[in-house]
Amino acid sequence: MKLRLKIWRQKSQDSDGAFENYELDGVSSGMSFLEMLDFLNERLVSEGREPVAFDHDCREGICGACSLMINGAAHGPQQEVTTCQLHMRAFRDGDEICIEPWRSAAFPVLKDLITDRSALDRVMQAGGFVSVSTGGVPDANTIPVSKNLADLAMDAAACIGCGACVAACKNSSAMLFVSAKVSQLSLLPQGQPERGRRALRMVGQMDKEGFGHCTNTSACEAACPKHISVSHIARLNREYLKASLCGGEEELLSD
C-alpha cells in the first residue's frame, strides 16, 4: 500500500512543533502500525533525516507504552486494541493518516509523538497501593473473595495505564484511569484499610496534575483498549462521596 502520513514533529518539550507530510510506499497490510513507523524511520535514517520518535515497549498490548492519536481516535480506528496491536489491514491503499501525540496539559510532549505520562504515576503514588504484612508467605486463598467481586476487580485491573482515556476525553479527564485503579483495590479485602483515603488522595492528585473533570460522555470507554467500563467511574464517585461525607478520622485528616 501507499500511504500519505501527516505526523506531528517536535524537537523538544520547549520547542514549537508542526505537522510534516510523508509519502510511504511499499507498506504491507500485515505490518503492525508500529512496524509501519519503523519502516518509515528506516527510510528517513537512510536519507539522513531524523527518525520519528514514538513510545513503545512490549508491542503485545500489555505495557501501555504505545500511545498515538491516529486519525482522531486514540489507538486508531479499531476497538479494544492498542496502537501496537493495530495492523495496517485496518487502512486502505492511498489513505491519509494523521498521527498526533496525546494532547493534555498533564502529558507534556517530550519529542515528536512521545509524551511524559508520569502524572499517572504520581496519581498512583498518592493512593494506588495496599499495605501488606511482611514475614512468611501466606497460604493462597486464605482470604475468601467472592467470584463476582474477584471478576469485577480483575476487569478493572485490566487497565494498562496507557492514557487513551485522557487522550480521548474532550476534557482530558483521567477519571476512567483513576476509577479503574480505585475499583481494583477497593473491591478486594486487601484494599480495605486505605479505602477512603485512597479515593480522596487519588482524586486530589488527579486534580493537582491538571486533568479535567468528567462530563459522562463515555468517550473514554470507547477509546479504552481494555474496554474498562464507565461503571467504575460511578464507583469512584461513590467511594469519594462516602469518604468525604462519612469518612473516619483518617479520611477527615488526610490531605
Partner: peptide, 21 residues
C-alpha cells in the same frame, strides 16, 4: 469546571473523532 477542563487541553487535536459521543 468548564474553565478547568479547557485549561486541561491547551493544544487542540488536528483531528478528533467525536462520532461516538
Amino acid at each position: 469546571l468548564t474553565r478547568l477542563s479547557r485549561r486541561a487541553r491547551p493544544v487542540a487535536y488536528q483531528k478528533q473523532d467525536l462520532s461516538g459521543v
